[in-house]
Write a protein that binds this DNA or RNA. Sequence first.
DNA 1: GTCTATACTCTGATAGAC
DNA 2: GTCTATCAGAGTATAGAC
Lengths: 204, 204
Amino acid sequence: MPPAAQPRSRIQQKNREMILDAALEVFSLHGFRGATLDQIAEVAGLSKPNLLYYFPSKEAVHKVLLTGLLDTWLDPLRAMDPAGDPLVEIMGYVRRKLDLARDFPRESRLFANEILQGAPRMREAIEGDLHDLVAEKSAILRRWMDEGRIARVDPMHLIFSIWALTQHYADFDVQVRAVLGPGHDPFAEAGAFLETLFTRLLAP
Amino acid sequence: MPPAAQPRSRIQQKNREMILDAALEVFSLHGFRGATLDQIAEVAGLSKPNLLYYFPSKEAVHKVLLTGLLDTWLDPLRAMDPAGDPLVEIMGYVRRKLDLARDFPRESRLFANEILQGAPRMREAIEGDLHDLVAEKSAILRRWMDEGRIARVDPMHLIFSIWALTQHYADFDVQVRAVLGPGHDPFAEAGAFLETLFTRLLAP
DNA sequence: GTCTATACTCTGATAGAC
DNA sequence: GTCTATCAGAGTATAGAC
């Protein structure tokens, strides 16, 4: 019973990873309903029944991908240190979030698909963990503003703006590249642009 | 032959609109592949065969929705006047784009779905009209910067940032509301936040 | 113009041979 | 553990009655 047991053989572990990688590829491009097991199996290089030997259902594959994704996504925000220098901490967060978007665009699009479709499989996580973490970090931002160490601005919308600006480069990648044309490095340019933007926005 | 003929009866016109409205609802929530004619027909209050009397295929319905969407989406940018006051023109663009996101969130999500999935049905429009318009308006922004009327920043990424920040409130609506909690008006707060952001970014 | 009935394909999932 | 064969249901689309 591979799907339940904890210890897995090397080949089982490898097949699971192949499946999850293929599923990430397909789900991130077509959303949950638009993705098919046929596609996933083909990308993974397995037959459909063999795929279903490792996971009990399409839903189960998707769930494994989503579980943990939010954590990975929020780790950079968690790392924002209340004891650090405000501008350094915020710029560090922007930098780490942009690096995530550059290095894990499929994960970003999987997340975007889920939210776009009303977050049917992440509702409670968003209203729970995400809400609480943002509330906690907003309080820190607000304190920094009260102390005059950064300029005053709505803390939650400041966080939204970091999400929007970094994820845009992963989620709308084809649009960004089509508009820029050849000979550009979108993420490198974005890094410089966002540094300027948040520096001017938050300079005390 | 209603699908081809130009002049349509009142009832035909009304049914076409009902179908397109229903299709917008369903496509924007599930993407092209995830949407089904059953759903669209049910939302429109018609039978599935009846829906297919007005449109030859699912693809055709989707195409009608996309056609013209990009134009509507870009009109606010087109309206940016090279002869106007730079900050007023840019803030006006931000304002109109945010209003679009607030008033037409389904259109915004339809567009987001299309881009997210690699723009299979909009590629040429994006590489053509969109690219050209952004190139034209970027030149205007660059001239304003050269004249010292606004602060210097990468013009294309400035436009990207306006897209990202305004569309985020439509596309990630459920996340924004979940994080803010009850008693908030996301779009009103966004309006104030974005005014501050772009004013500080672009003040000469 | 609209409906019922239906053809035919795709999709998720299972059974059972090897 | 992996495959072939297959099922039941959903999906797009068409035929033809009214």
